[in-house]
Design a protein around this nucleic acid. Structure first.
Lengths: 309, 309
DNA sequence: AATAACTGTTCCGATATCAGCAACAATAAG
DNA sequence: CTTATTGTTGCTGATATCGGAACAGTTATT
């Protein structure tokens, strides 16, 4: 017994004024409508119509139920329509704030892929690592790498961001390979702002103990790719997100260090305002990103063994 | 495809956090819930859950649909609950204003009958022919005989009220039987306020023409039964609602006059305020009255032939 | 580290349900 | 008074739905 179907039949009968008329408009036999009505009345335990064998008059009970039914059915339709994205019928623009490195390297391909499924969406992308005020600047969505939790915004976790310490083989040959965090003070460190402060790196040993390690900043920069290139050139040791250096590690041009230690777990988030009626574009795009970055990120898959050693 | 059941299954899964849990609480096999979910997603053309084979995470699309679904299901339950009167579980009081004669003669038995079905309803009856202000005096309902249409009130037609002109055989023998409206001026008329003014009676002939007939008021009273008794005593001709005199006409103690003519069509109405949430008591009682007085009123059934002649 | 417990999905056979048709009773219309 | 229409009901075949079991993948526990 489909309660929506019964309800709808009831509403159609009220609007058509007769069972036959309603059945015609619905394209079913009138016996079906009749039975649905009776089923509904039995379910409610109340008479909706005052039947005169030929005439159908709403009872007051029925009139009250009709008004509520109409609203409910409209709500159902609205909910279904708002949810069903009609597969590719998404249109409009999407203004997104992206972090520089992660955005260029990993979100770019994702956006291209999304655009192929929804060609009528226009992206307005702002690659920038500064904090932006979503509402003030009219962003639909921001992608951030952090561990923040803002109450007025919804944050959807997209992917874990792992950090890895590494250096080029040439550097290690020249300066030696550190075997413990304490040795780091004798090395040249290339410092990336996003996941570390300037003076210390926070490591976690195998027992889960946090170790605040003093380092020697040799070069500071806010751009991950610049630091990666510096490390490749043998300038020092970097602590960076794996998504930037995974290819270099995989190919052996950078060597992971201190494999027994872990770093602060960050994550990439999609962040957007809490509006009552979130646009289908934003919902669809975030759903797409969550699905695409689900599980262990592809940039970490090939490192799983190397960083463990 | 039962949309209601699918929606409910979806909500239960969200609330239980898993398909198995939802299936347990719903008392069905988990395969059923799984299939319902897939069906719903297919119907919407959108992914509601982000599945990880073991974990079920709501997509943003799903979260939005969930919020709407919860509200819809609550609305359905509320509508059904408000409509279903739980068969006799009606309680509370019902303050009703009734017309004197009609109330005593015909509504009284109806109310008794209603009370047998709903013993927990307490009636507060005010038999009075004066106009009462429903809202000011706290009436739930008023029964009126009129043809009014007040915008702020809902009026439900209960029964047609026919009028009939009649006199006792003794009177007619003494004064003669009028054959046309014009002769009425030579007769003694007993005037009832409710359906006539003091100086004229409006009749309609067989062609539908309205005839304003001057009469001679011999006795004026606002109480129908008093006038009926006066007519029975042979004091004159009355024009009254059939519901007062139908037994006397049926038994021959009063003779219908001018059978070819009709009178203003009045009706008995149930009148009540237009409140958003009409109490179930009022709805149930009005529904009951409408049904009870449906069709040709029983007091007119036996007169149908007599008044036609 | 390896088993155990649990999750969601899929397939399959028995069962129940539902749509449509046709006949019927009752009423309004011409 | 006949005709057409309305709502209801019984019946039959097609359809869908249910529950159970097997399966694949994941977490928890030992």
């Amino acid at each position: 017994m489909d309660r929506f179907e019964n309800m709808q039949a009831f509403v159609r009968v009220v609007e058509a004024g007769s069972i036959s008329g309603a059945a015609d408009r619905m394209g079913v036999a009138k016996s079906v409508v009749s039975r649905r009505l009776r089923e509904l009345e039995a379910h409610l335990g109340a008479e909706l119509f005052h039947r005169t064998t030929r005439q159908m008059n709403l009872t007051d009970t029925g009139r009250a139920f009709y008004q509520q039914s109409v609203r409910i059915l409209a709500d159902v339709l609205e909910a279904e329509h708002a949810t069903s994205q009609s597969h590719g019928a998404l249109k409009g623009s999407l203004k997104v704030a992206l972090p520089l490195s992660f955005g260029l390297m990993h979100l770019g391909p994702a956006i291209n892929e999304f655009l192929q499924a929804h060609p009528d969406i226009e992206f307005d992308l702002d690659f920038n690592d500064r904090q932006v005020d979503l509402l003030a600047e009219g962003f639909d969505l921001a992608i951030r790498i952090a561990s923040l939790a803002d109450s007025s915004l919804i944050a959807r976790r997209l992917a874990p961001i792992q950090a890895v310490m590494c250096a080029s083989p040439a550097y290690l040959e020249r300066m030696g390979t550190p075997q413990s965090p304490a040795e780091l003070i004798n090395h040249r460190c290339l410092v990336y702002n996003l996941i570390s402060n300037y003076e210390h790196w926070n490591l976690r040993d195998a027992e889960g103990q946090w170790i605040k390690t003093k380092i020697t900043p040799y070069l500071k920069a806010s751009n991950g790719e610049f630091l990666r290139n510096a490390a490749l050139a043998g300038l020092g040791i970097v602590l960076m997100p794996t998504f930037i250096v995974y290819q270099e590690i995989a190919s052996g041009r950078l060597i992971p260090l201190l494999p027994g230690y872990q770093y602060a777990q960050l994550a990439a988030y999609a962040i957007y305002p809490q509006t009552r009626h979130l646009s289908q574009r934003v919902r669809a795009f975030v759903d797409f990103l969550v699905k695409r970055f689900d599980g262990l990120p592809y940039w970490d898959v090939c490192l799983q063994d190397k960083t463990q050693e």
